[in-house]
């Protein structure tokens, strides 16, 4: 464990899928929580339909599935504070920052690309 303890890598989680239609959003969130427990430098990126994961007001009772969206608000408690949303993806879906259930940094595609280049490990779900 001593090797891991001293080693902090930049982990980026790229979320590209809408919630509920597939399991990826939920299971991505589970890896995020674990990497926070390993005290890694974690950032989350939401692009394309992934931005829908952060839409305010999710009500899942009717589809008999757990609403996991409150977890995004709990991330701060795990020291996961770097949440990025691509501006083009938001705009293409008629959404703005006010529609999102958590504070994020909105970035242009180009700036997101640069941020991605700086990572050590990029996990895409």
């Amino acid at each position: 464990m001593s090797e891991e303890a001293g080693s902090i890598k930049k982990f980026m989680f790229v979320n590209r899928t809408a919630p509920y239609g597939t399991v990826y959003a939920l299971e991505s969130l589970e890896v995020v929580l674990i990497s926070a427990a390993f005290e890694q430098d974690v950032s989350l990126v939401f692009i394309e339909d992934g931005v829908y994961q952060l839409k305010k007001g999710q009500q899942t009772k009717g589809i008999e599935t757990k609403n996991f969206s409150p977890t995004y608000r709990a991330l701060e408690g795990y020291d996961v504070e770097k949440l990025y949303v691509e501006r083009e993806s938001l705009t293409a879906r008629g959404l703005s920052e006010d529609d999102l259930l958590v504070d994020v940094t909105v970035l242009a595609a180009e700036d997101l690309g640069k941020l991605m280049d700086e990572q050590d490990v990029v996990l895409s779900f």
Binding site: R16, I47, E48, E86, E88, A109, E110, L112, G113, K114, M116, D117
Partner: peptide, 14 residues
């Protein structure tokens, strides 16, 4: 699908 479009839009040259 739009994966390639997203890649071309976001990715820094590489």
């Amino acid at each position: 699908r739009k994966s390639l479009d997203a890649c071309l839009r976001i990715a820094a040259p590489g």
